[in-house]
């Protein structure tokens, strides 16, 4: 299974690229995030709390839906699904 991950700032700066395609070791969003952080270890502290939970200041979409509207990190993925990772901020 291949999953395309789109990273927006600041995650794209840390990874050095805005798009990554990976073959995760499992089928869930959690598996994808772990595989991503294995490739780019510096992302780990930006995406996860020390407790291992995804931090509140990261948004993750699976295709066109926030993962919170699905089954969060347990959401199962299929081949060619797309994941979007970004930081929510406001301003004018």
């Amino acid at each position: 299974m291949k999953i395309k991950i789109k990273l927006l700032k600041p995650f794209s700066d840390i990874a050095g690229k805005g798009e990554v395609e990976i073959e995760p070791k499992g089928e869930t969003v959690s598996d994808v995030l772990n595989s991503l952080c294995e490739l780019y270890p510096e992302l780990k502290k930006e995406i996860f709390e020390e407790s291992g939970e995804v931090t509140y200041s990261v948004n993750i979409f699976v295709n066109d839906k926030p993962m919170s509207a699905l089954e969060d990190e347990s959401t199962r993925l299929k081949d060619k699904d797309e994941i979007l990772i970004f930081m929510p901020v406001g301003g004018g």
Partner: peptide, 8 residues
Amino acid sequence: TLEIFFKL
């Protein structure tokens, strides 16, 4: 803006 803090 917290509306788009989906992980809150």
